[in-house]
């Protein structure tokens, strides 16, 4: 029977996942498979899985419950093995590496920060502070029919947006990174300009949250922050 694999933990992990049932259309209980010095946390699945939103939530929930009992290496969503033998072999083969990873991540959790800016505020600020864009904008609004004007204005504004977003993202990153053992910056998507993951040791969590709250206050309505965590260290497993 195929297995869905959620995570790897050390052999000393209490594995208290409670009564969570696993992913799939016909879910089985989540259980642990001993593999040398490690456990693989798995559930049986039929060969055909068509993942749904519920499966994502379960994958995440299993990680969160495991986190309570000790360090965990969360797998990326959606990985299955054909049978127990394959799982055992894979874990035994890289046992040293997984153990080192678990040790590295012990006592830490991931926090994920995203931020977006109020676009109108940002554009207003750009027009206020850059005479070039202000002038172009005034000419267009006054009815200047030159078809190049909007393009020139848009290009200048886009460059300013980029520059300001990058600078703010770098500033925010600098402000939060001191509370983290490791961090990971990724390209932001959608309206966001910041996509930052931080590996925060438990004993610095309060400081980190205080610092984050301070930034939120300081930046006010112009910036919307979204903080997720504590999360399993998805961004920091190797």
């Amino acid at each position: 029977m195929a297995l869905y694999v959620y995570a790897i933990t050390g052999k000393d992990h209490p594995l208290a996942v409670g009564d969570v049932t696993g992913v799939g259309a016909d879910p089985s209980p989540v259980r642990a498979l001993a593999c040398g010095p490690l456990y693989a946390v798995v559930s049986d699945v039929s060969e055909e899985i068509r993942p749904k939103r519920r499966d994502l939530l379960i994958h995440q929930e299993v990680q969160e419950r495991l986190m309570e009992g000790g360090p965990v290496l969360p797998l990326q969503f959606g990985y299955t093995a054909v049978d127990e033998e394959v799982v055992e072999q894979a874990l035994r083969k890289d046992a040293e590496g997984y153990l080192a990873n678990l040790e590295r991540l012990d006592g830490c959790a991931e926090y994920h920060v995203r931020a977006s800016r109020n676009e109108e505020e940002l554009l207003r600020q750009i027009l206020r502070e850059t005479p070039e864009t202000r002038e172009l904008n005034d000419r267009i609004r006054a009815g200047d029919p030159d078809p190049q004007l909007p393009l020139t204005l848009g290009r200048a504004v886009a460059a300013q947006v980029q520059e300001r977003q990058d600078a703010l993202a770098a500033g925010l990153t600098d402000a939060l990174v001191p509370y983290a053992r490791e961090h990971d910056v990724r390209p932001a998507s959608g309206d966001d300009f910041l996509n930052l993951s931080l590996l925060v040791p438990d004993d610095r969590r309060e400081e980190f949250l205080t610092a984050h709250a301070g930034l939120v206050r300081q930046l006010g309505d112009g910036v919307e922050f979204r903080l997720s965590g504590p999360l399993p260290p998805y961004s920091f497993v190797r």
């Binding site: 790897i8 994958h59 290496l73 969360p74 999360l231 399993p232 961004s235």
Partner: peptide, 8 residues
């Protein structure tokens, strides 16, 4: 993005 793209 973390669940789908990161993780082991």
């Amino acid at each position: 993005e973390l669940i789908l793209d990161r993780g082991l």
